[in-house]
């Protein structure tokens, strides 16, 4: 039935297939969205935009989410720009080396998504601190949280978290969450990564 599909090589995130089809994807600029976290201080936004222009990115729009702070009290900013895949990767690297926290580097092929469950005394152990600590790990950001506390906040509760990890860094992100869970005596239910149903 699905025999044909097995022969098609899976898309790789390292850009190899981009050259295989003539190199278009590598040289044609496409639109990228990057979510940055900025400290609430003057000049921060400008400093963050520098590495984009300097590394050949063409700025399209900036969406400053004032009033909507991240768990660590930072301001999320969404930036759209055009760049080739290669330059895009350079830009993300430059941003990170400037100390700008890049929460989610857009285009699907860059991000890996992973869903986990946490349970235990989530609220007593400061859920927002737990989330910030996950955010603080370079590899991933928390894209979505659902909480179920059927017995009230002092009893065992559960949370489902959708994490977005940088390409190839899902394992690093999971390791960080594992350590955090152990530290806070929370239980973690990991997905079977790399195993499609």
């Amino acid at each position: 039935m699905s025999d044909g599909r097995d022969g098609v090589p899976e898309e790789t995130a390292d850009g190899e297939d981009a050259t295989a089809d003539g190199g278009h994807a590598a040289t044609t600029p496409s639109t990228h969205t990057v979510r940055l976290e900025l400290v609430d201080e003057p000049g921060q936004l400008l400093a963050a935009l520098h590495p984009i222009a300097e590394n050949g990115g063409n700025l399209l729009s900036i969406y400053h989410e004032r009033g909507n702070k991240t768990p660590r009290g930072r301001i999320p900013v969404e930036v759209d720009f055009e760049a080739t895949q290669e330059r895009f990767e350079g830009i993300v690297e430059a941003l990170r080396s400037e100390g700008v926290n890049v929460m989610q580097a857009g285009t699907e092929r860059y991000a890996e998504e992973v869903t986990i469950l946490l349970f235990g005394h989530l609220i007593d152990t400061d859920l927002s601190d737990t989330l910030s600590q996950i955010e603080a790990c370079e590899s991933a950001s928390v894209a979505d949280v659902s909480l179920a506390a059927p017995q009230g906040t002092e009893e065992v509760s559960s949370a489902r978290l959708r994490l977005e990890a940088r390409a190839g860094e899902t394992e690093a992100a999971l390791t960080a969450v594992r350590e955090l869970a152990a530290e806070k005596d929370l239980r973690l239910v990991e997905p079977l990564t790399g195993v499609e149903a």
Binding site: S146, A148, S158, V189
Partner: peptide, 24 residues
């Protein structure tokens, strides 16, 4: 690690997202 302390709420959250929990 086993399943003794897996709360029903964790399975509900998993189900909401088209998932479930198995001892693998």
């Amino acid at each position: 690690s086993g399943i003794r302390d897996v709360p029903g709420s964790a399975l509900r959250l998993a189900a909401e997202d088209g998932r479930t929990v198995r001892l693998i």
